[in-house]
Computed example of a mutant assay.
Amino acid sequence: MLWNVDLTLVDVAIVTRDAYAEAFRVVTGRPLVKLAPALGRPDSEIVFETLAVNGVVAEDAHLPRFLSALAMAFADRRKRLAEEGRMMPGARDALKAVARLDGVVQTVLTGTIKSNAVHKLKAFGLDKYVDFDLGGYGEEVYPKATLLQVAQGRAKQRTGTPFTAANTVVIGDSTRDVQAAKIGGAAVIGVASGRSMASELREAGADLVLADLTNASEVVAAVAGLTAPVDRKAG
């Protein structure tokens, strides 16, 4: 079970933009004028576009330096997350309820770099439900569909069980999340809480679409209906 983070579980856009501005200043010595829109993309992709739209010619060293600076800037601002951000309605109860399903392990599939994803969920007490070691993150320079397959590989290595669309579910709020899941090999639940409307999520190929996460029983039923249990003790 892989959760998208931003606008699915939490919304910390103000702090994220501020951290990006600081990282941009550290790396380029210039103020950030325009931040490339997230649109469900990984941080690595956002960094390159942000450099370009601000007139900076990207070099090989830019990405690792920027991601390192972004991690530091975000960590420095982590105490602001709960104050200036919000947990999406129903997120905690949904995570808690899904955690009770037999054989389910929850992780994240996110464009956010790993350290920042941990900060985002920890700020709202959601980290206790997530196995971060199995996730796919924005510093891994792959399309999101490939990140899904990377995460499935990590889960297989842990459990000895192959993961396919029959026993893998992605939950996300954007059409990019849906497309990545379909390409990467997973069932997908769209949540119309963020970037995309319910109709857009359905058109993109979501197996199920929820208005939000406020009905935990509905979330659990959706996950259970799309997966076959995996034995945690396998392997």
Rank of each mutant, 00 (worst) to 15 (best):
V150N: 08
D93G: 08
A91C: 06
T159N: 10
V130I: 15
Y129Q: 01
K96P: 02
A82S: 15
L208W: 13
Q157P: 00
L201C: 08
R154N: 12
G172P: 02
A181M: 05
L134M: 10
K144N: 04
E140V: 15
A117Y: 07
D212P: 03
R202I: 07
A99G: 06
R195V: 14
M87L: 10
V130Q: 03
V104R: 03
A211N: 13
V108R: 00
G111I: 00
T146Y: 13
P89S: 07
R78V: 12
R77Q: 14
A151C: 05
A216G: 11
E200I: 06
E83T: 12
Q106P: 02
Y137L: 00
I113G: 02
G153N: 02
Q157E: 13
A192L: 02
T107Y: 02
G172V: 04
D131M: 07
T110I: 07
F124V: 08
V104W: 13
Q149D: 04
R100Q: 14
G172W: 00
A166V: 08
E140Y: 12
G85D: 06
A117S: 07
L148N: 02
N215W: 09
P162G: 10
R202G: 08
F124D: 03
A151W: 00
S199R: 13
T159A: 12
A166M: 07
E139D: 08
G185W: 01
K144Y: 12
T107F: 05
T107S: 15
T175Y: 01
G138S: 07
T168M: 05
G184E: 01
Q152C: 14
I189P: 01
K79Y: 15
V191L: 01
A180G: 07
E84P: 06
L147D: 03
L126D: 05
V209Q: 03
A151R: 00
K114V: 08
A91S: 09
F132T: 04
G111Y: 07
A151P: 00
A198I: 02
D173I: 04
A166D: 12
E200S: 14
F124W: 05
G194T: 08
F124C: 06
G135F: 01
I189K: 01
L208H: 14
A117G: 12
V170E: 02
N116E: 05
H119D: 15
